[in-house]
Design a binder for these strands. Structure first.
Lengths: 339, 339
DNA sequence: CTTTGGCACTCGACTGTAGCGAGTGCCAGT
DNA sequence: ACTGGCACTCGCTACAGTCGAGTGCCAAAG
């Protein structure tokens, strides 16, 4: 059955009121707070239909209605208009991010900013190495048989690893190795490196062969295979807002999930620039069935190099949160582009 | 008034029972569970004295007794013997830490291990830069007017910063600058660098003077002045054990405190190798008045380069926690010494 | 066919009362 | 100094009663 416009209005009103008050909303208070132009009885009939269709439900008989995950989904998809940020908010974002000196700094500031504005848990992924290109490889001799390899990516990420050499190398050999690897790998995407690394090994002069193999294996192992993703987290204290009413009193599973980097990456590791909303049940992780996640990809220009997002109760201010996440993602992208 | 031995026994029994059961303990159950060799009435008299002295208190009249912070303090100082770890635990620690490949890896493994064994919140400070010495400085040209400076410390920490040069430098100039700064700074403690940096500037050839100043200011600013301390955190989910009985139902202030790096550093930034216990009130941070912190310094050999610790309810298993923290600190020190 | 007012009903939240029992403090006796 | 006995306190639980927001249904009006 198709829902007519008024029923949709009723649903929207229910969502808005419930988000605002955190209490089941009844027919009478609904008509009082919104100009629906009909009587409570009519609203009751509409509510009955909405309940049959699974958009709202009653916590108990003789209580008001509460939106279901499906109801929120409809609300987000068709009923809400993204509310533009206030100029003050825009300025706050800019001011907060503009002083960043470092990639680490950018990420930390961003995650705190997101948590603060949305008053929820914020997660920011560092630019993914898999989607970065190599800007420079530096080899630093630590001892004659030990090398530190520093990889600088175009996204600002810098990773370093130590390599144990099979045989000592002297200064000029290190220089040669540095030149060779930079020639081969600079400018290429990290996910494309395996064949290039093979070529590097093949072309290396025979006396550097062993060292090249050691170097390559470290590069492949730590940077490509188990692709080193990193995330930053902030605002967990916000989970306690709403005094245990959300999350039926147990933060446990949520805090547990937030400790797993793998899970966080699954949540916000976006590939598309689109803002994405996962509501309650739609979430794949069982521990987070009581939460919603709003995430977006970010990157300099149109390419996406990482994701960010916030996590909160399903009962959240979707329009506001979506607007904030989207805006922050765009600003972060701009920050990165400037480097 | 001096407490005789039996009264101390009673206090110990109360602490042990309360930690185990989480319920106020009464005179009758106390004599049942411990071989005190006296009757409940006697115990009651002793309890009465202990209460007068402020070591225990009653949540309400007609309830059992609960240790006060002062009671825990006495327990920790005089009544408990550190229980040695089981061989299984020792092996677990070793196995967990031995695969670490990286400083980051060591720290992450350590913090998760601590959280897991103690079932509490664990905090590990990265080796402090202020207590590290410079092992190597590497200058990597990003462009002709931009340099990336990578500092490798003896503790395994690697920090990088970008430096905007006032004028372009060519390859050989960079090499000279690299050589000069390494000659000056290698082997010195970071906290001692300011005068050395000044000397570096003074001795630099005139055409490198400007670049040296730029480099120095970045070094001083980011590495020395606001000394870049880092910490890792794990096990926040453990705060929810004991179902809101600890922390009188509000995790809020604790989670908030844990988000502040400055606070974490204050808690576990140890200078001495000694295991330190802060109980409830003794804590300087108001938000953490309901928690206890057990911390220890770690480092290769006898010098301390950082701290680690755990945080939990005042009602915690002090002997076990102290033993674990101490053991983990020692193992981490050994790991670092091997590098 | 939709909307509306009316009405009986449900059920959670709150209040007050009563009984239970763990635990205490005190005291007299050993 | 220790112990057994005893009266007392008070939080906890169960139960009954009331209140009220909210519902579903129905018949009448638009």
């Amino acid at each position: 059955m198709a829902l007519d416009d008024r029923k949709l209005d009723v649903l929207r009103a229910i969502v808005e009121d419930y988000v605002a008050t955190q209490e089941p909303v009844g027919s009478k208070s609904l008509v009082e707070r919104h100009q629906l132009g009909v009587s409570p009885a009519t609203v009751r009939n509409d509510m009955s239909v909405l309940e049959e269709e699974g958009y709202i439900r009653q916590p108990h008989t003789s209580a008001g209605r509460v939106p279901t995950d499906r109801g929120y989904r409809l609300f987000v998809d068709r009923l809400s208009t993204v509310k533009p940020l206030s100029p003050a908010e825009r300025r706050a974002i800019e001011r907060f991010l503009v002083g960043a000196v470092d990639l680490d700094d950018v990420v930390h500031r961003t995650v705190r900013l997101l948590a603060q504005i949305t008053r929820q848990v914020a997660v920011v992924q560092y630019p993914s190495l898999a989607r970065s290109t190599v800007r420079h490889l530096e080899l630093v001799p630590i001892s004659t048989t030990r090398l530190m390899v520093v990889m600088i990516a175009n996204t600002g990420r810098v990773e370093q690893r130590q390599v144990e050499l099979p045989a000592p190398l002297d200064e000029t050999q290190v220089t040669t190795l540095r030149r060779l690897s930079n020639e081969k790998l600079c400018g290429s995407k990290l996910s494309d490196t395996p064949p290039l690394v093979q070529a590097l090994i093949d072309e290396a002069p025979v006396e550097l062969r062993a060292a090249t193999v050691a170097l390559s294996s470290v590069l492949l192992e730590t940077l490509v295979e188990r692709h080193e993703e990193r995330v930053a987290l902030a605002g967990t204290a916000n989970l306690t807002r709403g005094g245990l009413l959300d999350f039926q009193g147990s933060l446990r599973p949520i805090l547990e999930a937030l400790e797993e980097e793998v899970i966080l990456l699954k949540l916000i590791g976006e590939v598309e620039p689109i803002t994405r909303v996962r509501i309650g049940d739609e979430n794949e992780i069982d521990n987070l069935r009581a939460t919603s996640i709003v995430s977006a990809g970010y990157g300099p220009g149109v390419t996406i190099v990482g994701g960010l997002g916030v996590l909160g109760p399903t009962r959240m201010d979707y329009p506001g949160t979506i607007a904030t996440v989207r805006a922050v993602a765009r600003y972060v992208g701009e920050m990165l582009a400037q480097n």
